[in-house]
Design a binder for these strands. Structure first.
Length: 272
DNA sequence: AGTACGCCCTGGCCGC
DNA sequence: TGCGGCCAGGGCGTAC
């Protein structure tokens, strides 16, 4: 479900609440959550008594820096991290599979209807290598030169954008929206892009991700921030889920196709 | 290396 | 109202 902007909104909501606090209790009640590494009990044991030095984001991953180790959380399609202070905020339900109780009050719940998300612990020093995600599109390293190198691939440009090992954090919504803003057809071969197109796409990626963060994310169905509130960016989508509707730029009918097993939306006139 | 497919899950929506 | 089929923002393993 959540892409870079949604994860970043949640991270910003949570950082003030958990940074510097100690995990007093931890409960993981779903074995699927820890399938990548360890058992629920092992992960719980690695968390209890540890202080959260920082809460960072890498692509679509949350990284809770616990010192020597880091807790890694990925939300998959329907995962949510929901905060509850003492007596207010989220109440757990049947889809709530884990929670962390923090010193000084407050509980962080992990809720995930489809259970595609995951939660595991890695040595902090090996997080980067283990996750293997590519450049952060909002960071300074995402230069035109770096993106040109990435585009030297024999794959369609949209598939490239969705490849987390190349560029971190872009998912189906923001890929379609960025390609629309750059006026590039999703089916174009990445290697066929001219320099001016790569420049436009890089700019569009950054703009659409920043706009997504500014509007607190895209809530198509069940995305919610850490306080349970939906994002407002859907109203500003120009192509995603707008198939059959007129293009906001030229009035042509927005089309929907399948590309790389994912629904893909574009304007057949504006995007070339 | 790239692509297609099945699969992991659950729920919402649509048509009948 | 009920039911089957299809769809979904992610990503992995396998086969080609």
């Amino acid at each position: 479900m959540p892409e870079l902007p949604e994860v970043e909104v949640i991270r910003r909501d949570l950082v003030e609440r958990v940074q510097g606090r100690r995990i007093q209790r931890a409960k993981i009640g779903e074995t699927r959550l820890t399938r990548r590494r360890g058992t629920p009990h092992e992960v719980e044991a690695a968390l209890i008594g540890r202080r959260v030095n920082a809460l960072r984001r890498r692509g679509k991953f949350f990284l809770f820096d616990l010192g020597r180790d880091s807790l890694v959380v990925r939300l998959g399609m329907t995962g949510q991290l929901l905060w509850s202070g003492d007596g207010d905020g989220f109440r757990p339900d049947q889809h709530t599979h884990a929670h962390l109780v923090f010193s000084g009050g407050g509980t962080l719940y992990y809720r995930d209807i489809r259970k595609f998300g995951e939660m595991f612990v890695l040595p902090t020093g090996s997080v980067e290598r283990t996750l293997g995600v590519g450049v952060e599109p909002l960071d300074a390293e995402f230069t035109l030169g770096a993106f040109r190198e990435i585009c030297r691939a024999s794959t369609k440009v949209k598939s490239l954008l969705l490849n987390q090992a190349k560029v971190a954090g872009i998912g189906n919504i923001y890929a379609d929206e960025a390609l629309f803003r750059a006026r590039i057809r999703p089916t174009r071969g990445a290697a066929s892009l001219r320099v001016d197109e790569i420049r436009a796409l890089r700019r569009a990626i950054r703009e659409v991700l920043q706009a997504g963060i500014r509007h607190r994310g895209s809530s198509i169905s069940n995305y919610r921030d850490a306080c349970g509130q939906p994002g407002r960016f859907v109203a500003l989508h120009r192509v995603y889920h707008r198939h059959g509707k007129p293009c906001v730029r030229c009035g042509s009918v927005i089309r929907k196709i399948v590309l790389g097993q994912r629904s893909t939306h574009f304007c057949p006139t504006c995007q070339r």
